[in-house]
Design a protein around this nucleic acid. Sequence first.
DNA 1: TTTCCCTTGTGAATCGTTTGAGCGATCACA
DNA 2: TGTGATCGCTCAAACGATTCACAAGGGAAA
Lengths: 340, 340
Amino acid sequence: MTDKNIPSPATLHDVAKLAGVSYQTVSRVVNNMPHVSPRTLEKVNRAIAELNYQPNRAARSLVTGKSNAIHVVVFDMYNLRMIPSMEYAAHENGFQFRLTGLHGNVPTKELGQKLYEITTSQIDGVILVLPWVTITDEELQRMMRGIPYVIVGCSLGYETNSVLVDQQHGTRLAVEHLLELGHRKIAAINGSVDHYYDARLRRATLLEVLEEHNLKLVAEETGNFSIQSGFDAARRLLEKDPGFTALFCANDEMALGAIRAIKDCGLRVPEDISVVGFDDQYFAGYCDPPLTTIRQDFEALGAHSFQQLLSLLKDPDMAPHQRILYSKLIVRKSTAHPAH
Amino acid sequence: MTDKNIPSPATLHDVAKLAGVSYQTVSRVVNNMPHVSPRTLEKVNRAIAELNYQPNRAARSLVTGKSNAIHVVVFDMYNLRMIPSMEYAAHENGFQFRLTGLHGNVPTKELGQKLYEITTSQIDGVILVLPWVTITDEELQRMMRGIPYVIVGCSLGYETNSVLVDQQHGTRLAVEHLLELGHRKIAAINGSVDHYYDARLRRATLLEVLEEHNLKLVAEETGNFSIQSGFDAARRLLEKDPGFTALFCANDEMALGAIRAIKDCGLRVPEDISVVGFDDQYFAGYCDPPLTTIRQDFEALGAHSFQQLLSLLKDPDMAPHQRILYSKLIVRKSTAHPAH
DNA sequence: TTTCCCTTGTGAATCGTTTGAGCGATCACA
DNA sequence: TGTGATCGCTCAAACGATTCACAAGGGAAA
């Protein structure tokens, strides 16, 4: 009924007929192939514009085996902030953007199934946002069946294209900041070391830097990166009362929760306890006190990962490399000299 | 070189050969069509499993004109929190998830171009996350070329499938809460009424409720929903010093910024000024003071919008309807009786 | 005028499916 | 035993592009 008003999209033939050339020639124009005179080019382009012609992606995909689309696989929707920048970069470069989120701790087999579906969908490239590493480079490479891919957020070794933030550098900045302020009794709320690559690196670096100064972590709890878990973890730390003067939190959300817990105990931040976060989430500058933290540029992470995929698409034989971004220390009001 | 190890995906023919039947029969099996004997079904299924067969989406798409995919168009990546729940629902139901974000204030023509590309890509359905309304129902309907779609976040009238949150109800809750506490001098930081449907409704309802109590807004500023803009707007309000005791903010981010500005002036929240936010973002319960706000269930919004699209896909002649979600008041510590 | 290249058209094959038509074989019923 | 109907399966034609090889026509250079 209403369907009558909707003309089915124009095809190559329609354009050809209107322009008075063969559909072959139209195909040449559409694909920017040589051997077409300016005059016919003009005619064809006008016909294309008039009919509002768009090549049928399915047909094109079928014969070329390509799709002009990339697929992003995100685990636990780990850091949504990367998504818009990836999406933007993809469309800017003429690629469709497809997304799938994996939930919970995905076993390798299920991941394999998902990747099989994706890699057999004529997709041009894949970005894997992997917060952990329960998979080897070889396994992944096999699963990807020759489709170009880049990994974001963790490293599987130098043989794999990846883009990541140097967690050791960032953590070092945070810890050394606390040390310079004079803190010696430092506690931490870490993320799950078993599940998160970043969490593991941050924790290891924390211990390493302390060791360099002949110090030990006075206490430690683990959270799941949520505000609530930071709150709970800080409560546990304070109950044990190990007398720490500074608290290193593996992300801003947990730092926010921790600050609430500290205040609830009648202590002040930073006078009694200094708190550093990680990530510089958009609320970090506006909580109370404004959070000293390590800024990670997630937008850049997303944009770079697409760029790397794009390079790989253009030159499939490109030597794999890792792109490392560095984070920086943002000093605000949640850290100060210890009272002593 | 490495390509040798990657077997090209199996086709219907491969499966057919292995199972010893014709490829059309395999097609029948794959598509759960009747008229296939249990014995051949069994044979074919075993062959499918053995070859790890996945139908070629492009080929299927080409002939059916469908894609088993939905496309979500988000303006300004307005509220990312809806994305994961949409994505999840889509994949749960066997649909691919494609995403495009539109940036800035997109003119209708450009929107039309984007939608043309999308609707001619054999997509099954579209979800439009539209924060504003510079387009009419008819225009949109024409642009969608018969592809089923639902709108999220604003209403284009009862003829259009949409799912939205009742902004008037939520705003009323917030304002009446302030009035019940005894506030009479209320100021507001609104979102841009020209650009956002929600902002317009919230502002209008705010004025309406006040009017019902024979009150007027004592002062008003406009922000762009960012923390910084809330901070700036609050500064301007305080400079003018209209002596308000309560501040209505059109979202939590602006409320957060406003609280910072208020504190910077040496005033206290809620003792000197009560603040209500909107949305109940995840940080709202943990800022200082914890924010009284209106909770909007964005996850439900995303899930429902997919469900509505799914119903529409199953029955294209379904009568259009609007699905309204209600928000609720979350009272925390940022509001109190006025000092007088 | 001849030669050659550049432009364009012709024709056909191919990509991996879906889908309606059609063809035997089976089976119930009279 | 003859007649349809039904069942299980196969044939063959699309779907809309890309990508060959090849030939015809035109214009410019020799």
